[in-house]
Amino acid sequence: MKRLLLAATSMLALATGQAMAQQRLVVAAYGGSYEKVMREQVIPPFERANNVRVDYLTGNSTDTLAKVQAQKGNQQIGVIVVDDGPMFQAIGLGFCQKVTDRAAVDALYPIAVLGDGAALGTGFGYTGLAYNEKLFRERNLPVPTSWNDLTRADLKGRISIPGIDNTYGVHTVAMMARINGGSEREPGPGFRAMREKVNPNVLAYESSPGKMSEMFTSGEIWMAVWGSSRARAMQVAGFPMGFVAPKEGGVALMTATCAVEGNPAPELAQKFVAHLVSPDVQAAFSKEYGSGPTNRNTQLPPEVAQHVIYGEEQVKTLIGLDWSVINPARQEWTRRWQREVER
């Protein structure tokens, strides 16, 4: 009995000793298929290599930004992953710590280094039109080719668009503005087109990727404005998802990461940021999540490469929006969207 007790206490001592030595890092990033890749392939090797425990906080970009804003002065989150637009906001608000690993920064395409090295792009994708290939074939509907397909009468009540709180929603307004004679600086025509022509077709504005997938699988919606990686993830899961870059252009969408200023484990956070842009991790995301690598040393097998944005040349074929104009006006865009479009 005595020996057993001794063994138990020493085990306990060992266990607590280990727990004390083990540091923690909080990572806030997207949910859905992105989280799956993170939990299965990205986080475990990092935990082993650095003897650390990583806690994962799920949220879309604006949620994550809100959390960082809420914890200003007492940051718990070490690393965030958000879309490029919100990342520029995060940099502007001073939430990002400059990346210290010069080698990691130099390995990226210059377009993926944001705010002079305050944040790094982790993957390329683009916003376009996702549609249920099977339903379109069965009903003899023409495959979408243009942003104007959002106004088609034969898709009335069968379309979903993510809300303005989501980058896809911002992209939709910006593109409707551009093809109707406006621009990011002059979004009026975009809002008018959304209100008069697109809104009557929209069943629901849905920002959550999980609910969007659910509406596609239940046949509730036939087409949606969505991201290439999200559509790819549905294809990998076996759904007959079609995805096109409209002829006016798909809109470039980069996911980006940064270490949060004033976080409790700055060294680990910096290491994790470098880990996210390392070729191995980038290849895993390309294969499972359908995002294009931002690290130019990433080697992809051809069957993976054909489904993602691969290389700077391909990135250049996409439309890049002017976030320096949108971000300061984003509150105004949100107001207008809520009052003019989403009603």
Binding site: T62, L65, A204, T334, E342
Partner: peptide, 21 residues
């Protein structure tokens, strides 16, 4: 109700978590 049918509680949520206002 979706995003279109806003009630006061969902407006509060949007201001706190999306607009950050």
């Amino acid at each position: 109700g979706g995003k279109r049918l806003k009630v006061v509680a969902s407006m509060t949520y949007t201001e706190f978590l999306n607009t950050l206002n």
